[in-house]
Design a protein around this nucleic acid. Sequence first.
DNA 1: ATGCTCCTGCGAA
DNA 2: CTAACGTTCGCAGGAGCAT
Length: 424
Amino acid sequence: MPIALVDCNNFYVSCERVFNPKLEGVPVIVLSNNDGVAVARSAEARALGVNMAEPWFKFEKLAKKHGIIALSSNYTLYGDMSARVMSILSTFSPKQEIYSIDECFLDLEGFPPETLVEYGQKIRQTVRRNVGIPVCVGIADTKTLAKLANHCAKKGFAGADGVCDFGRGSEAQLSKLFGRIPVGDVWGVGRKNTEKLLTLGIKTVEDLRTANPERIRSQFSIVLVRTQQELNNVPCIELDEAGTPRQQIMVSRSFGATVTALEDLSESVAYFATTAAAKLRQDGSVAASVCVYLHTNAFKEGEPQYQQSKIVPLSQPSDDTTVLVKAALAGLKQIYRGGFSYKKSGVMLMGLQPKGSVQPTLFDNPVEHAKSDGLMHVMDEINRKMGKGSVGIAASGVGHGWAMRRDKMSPNYTTDWNELPEAG
DNA sequence: ATGCTCCTGCGAA
DNA sequence: CTAACGTTCGCAGGAGCAT
């Protein structure tokens, strides 16, 4: 029952390189929203010592010194490139689980075992040729092992050239290999668990694989026991094809500058609620309640801190932007306190259910419903055709003084004609 | 005891 | 010149509450 995990190399950097060949062979990093921290690094940047999630201001000097090119993240571009990659990958298996923006699992059940490495190479070549993105392929009998095989493919372990199939290795070879991999590299073993495992003398993948399961269960959780079983070739985590609908939708941002006025916060919250509502309708769901929260800058230790959240239940589940914005603003008004410098706010839609499953109440007015659905549909269509943010509701404002910093943006090469660079 | 909801912590990308 | 530290999602498990 082999499974492949296909993962794009330095995905955001690779996307930028497809459209700007000057970025090839030089150190490049992509920064998070607000140009806060590094979220993708080219191999060259990694070699210079730039760490993942490292704040930009901490390595800006190093970047200057070595000519590291830093770019703001361009999620419109990455989302579009991801869709192209996933579409190609879907042709390589009847069953695909899109796990994140840059990786997916493919079910390789029934493929001749001795041909899988070759098949992996074909996958790599096809994606590279058709979209320009380099990928690596890990193959094994469980998702956790496929992730680990991918890790080995990326690092070139065991002579891997972008593809690693654990099914080709003997028990003894795998034991030896696992003995060299730190336990923290395993999918599902994070920082906290790594620290704790180390104190128990469990340092490598092999240590975890062969540890006493009862000990793992009592010291940790059922989750880590499942991880351990998967390392022993026992599948515990199913391939999730359908993409089960989300249970909550969150939209939040740090502000480019701090904000104090309720009016400005209201604009941001209305904007986030509008974005969240569009996602909700995209999913074909309705929300039962809206949670709004705000936060001062926790990193500024000298300043007065305040954070608060408020859940606003709706009289009935809804996907109507005006209803959701109204609820979010009502919640914000209740938790807002003057005299603080706010750095972040957010809107969460909770209690999501499929739209069709909701029972209309006695007080429900079908005519009002149809009117609202029509308006929301028109809004979504215009924003789809003209670009996100073309139409919203007045409460979102137009100035966006709270908008995030993105000083180093590359153009939207694939989704906006107006941003194509001049030829020559 | 049992079953809920709410909240926090953790992990992942 | 200074100040500057991401976002979105699911799951487990404990607390608190009601039955």
